[in-house]
């Protein structure tokens, strides 16, 4: 996993509440057995005017010029600014894979759906919860100012506007540590393999029917 430390990134505002993972990456792209290459199909049904299928040459497809991601001013955006309950619905990790593959490194919203939020951390993508008021302010500023960037500092747990206004965000110590260092969580857990084994033996003795 790519470590996440600091980022100074162009902000793309996606002004919709309840953006679900079906919208983030439609089901036909879930047939892939790989975990990369989903970026060109991020928000496929909103981003293109024609119907997308796996294996298509996306550069030849009809772009929807009204969709915010297609505005030239947001080309190269690394911070996705979103509304409440972002990433609701299906547990598909293809959603953070697509967002990360497109080039985003952070998503800011007033709230996220639980499974999506959790999935982000496994992929070097930082989801940041800020208050509705702050997110409203960031939307206004991002829409009003071309080239609007936010500075994100994970170590300090801050998001800073171009005017120097700083907002702090919460993250658990475990997630922060993994993200800052780009750690393989499985490797970390297996350091406790003996504890898991002891727990398992005890459980087996108590509830043998779980171990057929």
């Amino acid at each position: 996993m790519k470590p996440f430390t600091q980022l100074n990134g162009l902000v793309c505002p996606l002004d919709r509440a309840n953006v679900d993972t079906d919208a983030i990456i439609p089901k036909q792209f879930l047939k892939s057995i790989k975990r990369s290459g989903f970026g060109p199909n991020l928000f496929d049904e909103w981003r293109y005017l024609d119907h997308g299928e796996p294996g298509m040459d996306n550069s030849k497809r009809q772009i929807n010029p009204e969709f915010v991601l297609n505005f030239p001013r947001y080309a190269g955006a690394q911070v996705l600014l979103a509304r409440d309950n972002f990433g609701c619905g299906s547990s598909r990790e293809h959603a953070p894979w697509a967002i990360e593959d497109y080039g985003f490194r952070a998503v800011i919203a007033p709230s996220f759906a639980d499974i999506f939020f959790n999935n982000c951390f496994k992929n070097g993508l930082l989801p940041i919860v800020l208050s509705t008021e702050v997110v409203d302010q960031l939307f206004s500023e991002a829409e009003a100012t071309e080239g609007y960037q936010l500075a994100i500092d994970l170590e300090q747990q801050t998001v800073t506007t171009p005017a120097g206004q700083s907002f702090s965000f919460d993250i658990t110590a475990h997630r922060k540590h993994c993200l800052l260092n780009g750690l393989d969580e499985i490797g970390l857990t297996l350091a406790h393999a003996e504890e898991i084994r002891v727990f398992e033996e005890k459980r087996k003795a108590q509830q043998p029917w779980l171990f057929v």
């Binding site: 975990r35 547990s91 990790e93 499974i115 959790n118 999935n119 496994k122 499985i186 857990t189 393999a193």
Partner: peptide
């Protein structure tokens, strides 16, 4: 429900 990274985590640990 869990994501695919967690599927792998549960399989391995």
């Amino acid at each position: 429900g869990i994501g695919t990274s967690e599927v792998e985590h549960v399989m391995a640990t």
